[in-house]
């Protein structure tokens, strides 16, 4: 009798311990770090100087990321379509590209693209390699690298769509291209939006690698600042906190988007 009763009444009162355990302490810690950094910057002159100097690189970081991501989306979509294509040449080119890029460290790839591939490519069109600005080379290098990741995301997205969708579209007389464009891709892209968002955040971080090309993004500017003032602690703390703030905001945005999409879906 008592047993049955205790079974039916769920434990409504959560123990204090459970609630403490579920609390997002990590978030509090991050917020504390951010507040602490703000406090340092507000009260400490050398942190202030570092921030003012490093912030000059923000627009390059943001621009590089945005342009490179836009270009990577185009490359990724084309190569993703290649990965699922029945055209032997197209699909082999796409596979080759993806495998090569994924098999080389990003840093090495960036060097290679910026100093070898872009130069050769420019030369092919009769342009001297040194006339291609480093900013542009950095964008191309990042885009080519991320294009391979995005290609795999698009491939997975396309393959996640039921075969019956393509068959229904084709049975109505649509060509493969039309079926892709109007039926498959709209569904596939919607499915991979969260993954695309995550890679955007990842690219923002990896854009720091272009500092090796002497592109004056926040990482490069921070290095210059640290080297000339010997304020390594201040420069790199400010740099890290800047990246952290940007990625936190972006991740939150991506999550919000994901939740909205999820709510919109039946």
């Amino acid at each position: 009798m008592t047993k049955a009763a205790s079974k039916e009444t769920p434990l409504i009162v959560e123990s204090l311990w459970d609630r403490l355990a579920r609390f997002p302490w990590w978030l509090v810690a991050i917020i504390l770090v951010l507040i602490g950094s703000a406090y340092f910057v507000a009260t400490n002159e050398s942190y202030q100087a570092s921030l003012l100097f490093i912030v000059q690189g923000i627009s390059i970081t943001v621009q590089t990321t945005l342009y490179a991501y836009a270009l990577a989306l185009v490359i990724g979509l084309i190569m993703g379509l290649g990965r699922v294509s029945r055209n032997v040449i197209f699909s082999n080119i796409a596979r080759f590209y993806v495998e090569v890029v994924r098999g080389i460290p990003m840093l090495v790839l960036i060097f290679y693209i910026a100093f070898v591939a872009v130069v050769d490519f420019a030369g092919f069109f009769g342009v001297a390699g040194r006339d291609v600005p480093m900013n542009v080379r950095a964008i191309i290098a990042l885009a080519v690298t991320y294009g391979a990741f995005l290609a795999e995301i698009f491939r997975a997205g396309i393959q996640s769509i039921d075969r019956g969708q393509m068959e229904a579209a084709r049975s109505l007389g649509m060509s493969y291209t039309k079926a892709m464009r109007y039926v498959i891709l709209p569904q596939a892209i919607r499915n991979v939006l969260p993954a695309l968002g995550n890679d955007f955040v990842a690219m923002l971080k990896d854009s720091s690698l272009v500092s090796v090309l002497a592109v004056r993004d926040i990482t490069q500017v921070a290095r210059l600042h640290a080297g000339s003032t010997f304020r390594f602690r201040e420069a790199y703390t400010v740099l890290a906190v800047l990246y952290l703030s940007m990625t936190l905001v972006l991740s939150a945005l991506v999550q919000w988007l994901e939740r909205r999409l999820h709510a919109g879906r039946k």
């Binding site: 969708q165 229904a168 579209a169 109505l172 007389g173 039926v183």
Partner: peptide, 17 residues
């Protein structure tokens, strides 16, 4: 594609978009 446009097909699982 032109030939298929003249042939309607209805599937077991509907396959609506």
């Amino acid at each position: 594609d032109e030939i298929r446009a003249e042939i309607g097909m209805v599937f077991q699982l509907f396959n609506l978009f």
